[in-house]
């Protein structure tokens, strides 16, 4: 029993800290400090606000509004990013040609084109999709590029010397070495894609999780706003930690990614 507690000490402390945080938050505004509902909320109110919107089906509806452009944009980014990155790594000249431009684009705050994108594509799915694509494609490009370049020539030769053909080299060496890079890129890309959806929905939209956060903020419905903020946080953590977990599970041979 003691050993179990010791082993899980980190986890237990973390969980305890989170519970403590919400508890203290609740207690402070349940008597110690008078709650100004136009300025602050507390966990119990947030929860009931969340349940209200959940039961009316609103949460699911808004979620679906945001999910569609997210999926379209993100999948497009995966496909384009991997294709472009592979070309860059595979054909040295292509890599030389594209590297500076891509670096400049990656380093610049591309969110800045959001107003233009919205004006051109409108506030619906296409605008958000494009924004998400633009923001999340670069991590895929660069990580695939790096991954293809990092393929160990020695391993290629090993497989070839044992009589492997191109297909063997491809599936036994190249894909396994590049895949971890791509997935690590996915971790960065998720964060940027979420920024894309928020900017799109804050800036001009009529529905979606981001829109609801802004909308309830304008309405001073702080409890509801916090509920959607927390939904967004849970989604973000689920994505990034999920990918991290998948990385560890799928590539246990990679150290310190």
């Amino acid at each position: 029993m003691n050993a179990w507690i010791y082993e899980k000490r980190r986890l237990l402390l973390g969980v305890a800290a989170v519970i403590l945080f919400f508890l203290v938050w609740e207690v402070i505004f349940s008597g110690l400090v008078k709650l100004n509902p136009l300025f602050m909320s507390k966990p119990s109110l947030i929860w009931s606000g969340f349940m209200y919107d959940l039961k009316s089906g609103k949460v699911l509806f808004e979620l679906m509004v945001s999910v569609r452009p997210f999926l379209f944009g993100f999948i497009a980014a995966v496909v384009v990013g991997i294709v472009v990155g592979t070309f860059m790594g595979w054909r040295q000249k292509v890599g030389y040609a594209l590297d500076p431009l891509m670096t400049a684009l990656y380093a610049s705050p591309l969110v800045a084109v959001a107003p233009l994108v919205i004006i051109i594509f409108g506030v619906g799915v296409p605008g958000k999709t494009f924004l998400i694509f633009v923001l999340s494609v670069f991590p895929f490009i660069f990580n695939t590029y790096a991954g293809v370049k990092a393929v160990d020539q020695l391993l290629v030769n090993v497989v070839r010397s044992m009589g492997g053909n191109d297909k063997d080299i491809y599936f036994k060496v190249i894909v396994p070495s590049v895949l971890p890079y791509i997935i690590a890129g996915g971790r960065y890309a998720i964060g940027r894609a979420l920024v894309g959806i928020l900017v799109g929905e804050f800036y001009a939209a009529s529905a979606g999780i981001g829109y609801m956060i802004a909308f309830y903020g304008d309405m001073y419905a702080i409890d509801r706003m916090f509920a959607y903020i927390l939904i967004m946080m849970v989604i973000a953590v689920a994505f990034t930690e999920g990918i991290r977990w998948a990385e560890r599970a799928a590539f246990p041979w990679r150290v310190g990614m």
Binding site: G191, V195, L198, A214, Y216, A236, T240, E241
Partner: peptide, 19 residues
């Protein structure tokens, strides 16, 4: 602190703009 840092780091901070 770990859970809080993980959560805040994973979430685009833009989400807090309205609040």
């Amino acid at each position: 602190f770990d859970p809080f840092i993980t959560a805040f780091n994973a979430t685009p901070r833009l989400v807090f703009l309205p609040i």
